[in-house]
């Protein structure tokens, strides 16, 4: 029984990491109908920005919640800038072209970041400084819970609520939804669509940056290609929950994390990555709108 609950906890913590990345994915898709494949790489950049900031400011010598906040802030701002640049340089000139052009460009941007990352940071794995530690561990007999991972779960859920509020309650959110409905019509109504789209990208990239730092803290091995697999998994999670749907992304990610953990824990470790992609194919075949593929998203 303890083993089962431990698997449950492990699955939730893994899922919450996918959720953090999936949130940005799904938001950009919800507004632009563009699968931003570079998202996983922005997440990688977030981890590296966090690492260099921590090293520069010697944050690891004095681990504290404040240190974590500084690293998070640096990574989020840095990634927002990167997101802005990606959108401005690579995607905006293609706004009027067919969607497939954008998609291919997204793959190109992703490869560009991955390989420049290898040049810039070196391809060998780096150690992410431990800038925040919680010494108190939650354990109940054999059941061990890493408080940091529970924090990530909490952060994902909070971010989900915040995003939901921004998109559906704020003026910016209304502008985002309007731009998503029709760029031309929205701009006729006086909505600065270009700025709205930039904002969306920056928000999504900032989320990825935060995810990068948190993952670096929990799995302290970072490298330029670290974004590829989690990026794809988060994409699967977003599709699973209904891409474009913020709640769906979190639920999809948690489901994916749980199913991976149980599959590996109960005897089929080799099928871990196959599972995610099998799920993707099944969802696309039978329920292309995802579990939460609501009409609401469609109307948007």
């Amino acid at each position: 029984m303890i083993e089962f609950i431990q698997h449950l906890v492990n699955g939730l913590s893994l899922g919450s990491i996918y959720a953090l990345i999936a949130l940005g994915y799904t938001m950009v898709f919800g507004i632009l109908q563009l699968i931003n494949f570079a998202h996983g790489d922005v997440y990688m950049l977030g981890a590296f920005i966090g690492m260099y900031t921590s090293r520069l400011l010697h944050l690891d010598q004095n681990p504290s919640f404040g240190a974590l906040c500084i690293a998070l802030l640096a990574a989020m701002i840095g990634c927002a800038v990167v997101g802005f640049l990606i959108e401005r340089i690579a995607y905006r000139p293609l706004r009027k072209s067919p969607r497939i052009n954008l998609l291919i460009t997204a793959v190109g941007v992703s490869l560009f970041i991955e390989f420049s990352g290898q040049l810039l940071f070196g391809a060998d794995p780096k150690f992410f400084p431990q800038i925040f530690q919680i010494h108190q561990e939650f354990s109940y007999g054999e059941l061990k819970i890493n408080p940091l991972q529970m924090m990530v779960l909490l952060i994902s859920v909070i971010l989900m609520v915040v995003l939901q509020t921004i998109i559906y309650k704020s003026r910016w959110g209304r502008a985002m939804r309007a731009a998503s409905f029709s760029h031309d019509l929205a701009s006729l109504m006086g909505i600065p669509t270009d700025r709205v789209i930039s904002f969306t990208f920056m928000l999504g990239s900032a989320l990825a940056g935060a995810a990068g730092v948190l993952v670096g803290l929990i799995y302290p091995k970072i490298e330029p290609l670290m974004g590829v697999m989690p990026g794809l998994k988060a994409f699967v999670a977003a599709v699973l929950g209904g891409i474009g749907n913020v709640t769906g992304a979190v639920v999809g990610a948690l489901l994916l994390g749980l199913s991976e953990t149980f599959l590996v824990g109960y005897g089929y470790p080799t099928f871990r990555d196959a599972l995610a992609f099998a799920l993707l194919i099944l969802i696309l075949l039978f329920r292309p709108n995802g579990l939460f593929g609501s009409k609401r998203t469609d109307k948007v």
Binding site: Q33, F37, R99, V107, L232, V239, L284
Partner: peptide, 22 residues
């Protein structure tokens, strides 16, 4: 509905292309 299906299927193709291009 149609609006979503196309980019997603295209996305799947791109996922496959990823492993080749890299």
């Amino acid at each position: 509905m149609k609006k979503f299906r196309n980019p997603l299927v295209a996305g799947l193709v791109a996922v496959a292309a990823f492993s080749l291009v890299s």
